[in-house]
Amino acid sequence: MRFIVNGQHVEAVFDLRTSLLDLLRDHLGLSGSKKGCNQGACGACTVLVDGERINACLALAVQYQDRAINTVEGLSEPGALHPLQSAFLEHDGFQCGYCTPGQLCSAIAMAAELSRGVPSAVTVDLAAETIALSHDELRERMSGNLCRCGAYNGIVEAITETFSPQKSAQEAA
């Protein structure tokens, strides 16, 4: 079966029960996407499919033929980090680093959801065209990505700085 992973066409032969997460980790050697529960409860396995975030542990790989799959390895080349990755370093948005790939992919898709006006449980104006990245919107929308090290404050700062630079400048002032 063919897949497009991080812009590359790849072929793989595998057991049809294989999750997208196991395809990436065990068959394609892309271990950047993490497994924290294999049950959709922790978000460590979050990857982007056509720009949308999904829990790769809950997805059967066979469903994603010919779709554009992006993982943490595809966010940047070594030595040239994505601005969000740099912001994670700057704000210490992790400790052990195990939840980090999921947090990064999730945040990137979340920013896109906000700009498309996709509402969350804390959105006040459901009809808005785009939604501002408030502290509550951010935390609500990222609550599917657990961090047991408790790097939440740093993660929030890094995401805010990257996707709402104005807001983080105001806060710093």
Partner: peptide, 13 residues
Amino acid sequence: TRMDGALKVGGRA
């Protein structure tokens, strides 16, 4: 900043 940070945010650890 953590010395292993770039590896971790890159998913390369």
